[in-house]
Design a binder for these strands. Structure first.
Lengths: 338, 338
DNA sequence: GTGCGTGATGTAACCGGTTACATCAAGCCG
DNA sequence: CGGCTTGATGTAACCGGTTACATCACGCAC
């Protein structure tokens, strides 16, 4: 055995008086080893405390046993849950998970490139990497895009547009609101953008004009608070506000009452994502439930499946689009009774 | 070049008409290459689109360029922020981050073992892995324990006990509350436990008995809601409730007013962690700010530093204890004016 | 007894890098 | 001119596994 460090196949081979091939056969449970030999080798393995090096295995199999996930960062419950979905599938398959947060850094492409070189497959949140770049990379390895559409890549997403349309339609038809606005910047990633489009779809369906452009803010609660103050100061509250996510809605709900405006009395509000706090806020928040965990899990499953067995090539995934169901969760903040 | 896949050093060597050693010298920017040769090799590298394989590099240097982080899961903002701290340090160093969620699975030890084999160093959240096991593993590689104490391992933590004592003392001295209870199960990980101990320290300082044992619940908002209902049903609200984290406090704050009990009028409440929603809730939540991101970043820095340069051995870290500052954030929920 | 099939095991190449050491040519000096 | 130094480059071993193929002993059939 090397002076320091773990024993290798060759150490075991020497110790048991066999060849490395035989040791390898034992560790891989290859049946073509005579029982007495097997026992002798196993004894040496136990005696020296040998476990095959992950590096050696990776080298031989050309498999990293690692799945990469690329997202903007881990801020907010959405991404955390997504990662949990990916992670749960990965651990069951004995695969490690490499997390890369791009934080919209300019050199994110290079980081993704690097990550791609140490993983068997990639799960990428939409909007975090250039699509051309990903499409090229997808020639080499399985890549699954989450929460985005693409005609060149495999995507897993929810139909945020349809969901936004559904919940907006509820505001229009069940409550008769006519002056509606959208909170959240639709210029960034695919998710907020499609939600905004669904919001506009519903308005268009009813021949109603938007009561003002989207309120372009980031996606954290503080921005919701800022938006609430701005709306209040303008003296011109819409009938209802559709928020790009629940955090924004919480920010508004926490601020508006303090300014003397009640929810949903003076303005109704709906969120998106069904945050774990949504059912506890007062009023309880009407929102859209997304199977975020499933989104991650499904993406991971597709990616790992395409990775295939050690022998096989890592298949490039054909373009495909898997759409998971959303569900409008009607609570009180839209104006419905408890 | 192999029929499929990326070119290797040997492909470049053949293409440029030099040896692999020279190619290696060029990629590593070794100055001992004559300029004309360097240019010729570089031209081949560009022509074939060569980048050194991460696997080959790992094998040669015995470094994975990967940092592992072990935690129960990614539920709640605390862990997400911790990972972000780790991740930010890692990407700056060109190091990948491997996340392992144990979810308190019985076979977590084996997963950690595996993770340890594919990483250069480990950051472990306290309570997720057996300390004996970690101590042994720490002979082999740098391990940093987060949010825990140990006399055998390097730890990075905040003094949750002192912080809990401080905020509890505020409840006792500034407001004169006498009947205090703690919400959250102190039987699990080190963090909740030390918070509970600090809570009891403050009571002991003032010669006051706990108004009832700790309310043993999990750490999500729903449990806070359950606890609120239980307290209300018992008809015996304490003067003040110290919660193991902010989510629990949110759960209580969302539920109690609906039962006709006001906060802080009928019962004061304080949380822990300074969640991003804490300043927005109504009343705003008095809590303890923890430098969670810094916790992760510091742990990662220590771990990576111990990993050392490619040549050097991965040093086992000597036992050490780094304590980061907490800060009580006094808001309204304890009874203080806005 | 010879030839052949079969099962167990060993040998050596391979995966993709790095690097100690060998080699070699050129320049310099006495 | 011979020997030494120096700088550039090549050779081959090594990191730790797997595996195609070779080898060998044994048993069986003819």
């Amino acid at each position: 055995m090397a002076a320091s460090g773990r024993p290798t196949v060759r150490d075991i081979a020497k110790h048991a008086g066999v060849s490395v091939a035989t040791v390898s056969r034992v560790t891989r449970q290859d049946p073509k080893v005579a029982p007495p030999t097997r026992e002798r080798v196993q004894a040496s393995i136990d005696a020296l405390g040998y476990t095959p090096s992950a590096l050696g295995l990776s080298l031989a199999y050309q498999r990293y046993h690692t799945l990469g996930i690329v997202l903007p960062g881990l801020g907010g419950p959405y991404f955390a849950e997504l990662v949990q979905g990916v992670e749960s599938v990965a651990v069951d398959a004995g695969i490690a998970v490499n997390v890369l947060g791009t934080h919209f850094r300019p050199d994110a492409g290079r980081s993704v490139q690097q990550l791609a070189q140490r993983t068997d497959a990639l799960v990428v949140q939409g909007g975090t990497a250039d699509e051309d770049f990903l499409a090229e990379l997808a020639q080499t390895m399985p890549i699954v895009l989450v929460a985005a559409t693409s005609d060149r890549l495999t995507t897993v997403r929810t139909d945020g547009r349809a969901a936004a349309r559904e919940v907006t339609t509820h505001l229009l038809e069940a409550h008769g609101y006519r002056r509606l606005r959208f909170l959240g910047s639709p210029n960034g990633s695919p998710d907020p953008t499609s939600r905004y489009l669904g919001f506009r779809d519903a308005l268009a369906d009813h021949g109603i004009a938007e009561a003002g452009g989207p309120l372009e803010y980031g996606f954290e609660a503080e921005y919701g608070a800022m938006a609430a103050r701005e709306l209040h100061a303008s003296g011109d509250l819409p009938d209802a506000l559709v928020c790009a996510n629940d955090e924004l809605a919480f920010g508004v709900m926490a601020t508006l009452p303090g300014l003397g405006r009640s929810i949903p009395g003076d303005m109704a509000i709906v969120g998106f994502d069904d945050n774990s706090l949504a059912g506890l806020a007062s009023p309880t928040l009407t929102t859209v439930h997304q199977p975020t965990f499933e989104l991650g899990a499904t993406a991971a499953r597709i990616a790992l499946e395409a990775t295939g067995e050690p022998g096989a090539a890592r298949l490039p995934l054909p373009p495909d689009d898997r759409v998971l169901e959303t569900r409008a969760v009607i609570r009180e903040s839209c104006g419905c009774p408890a």
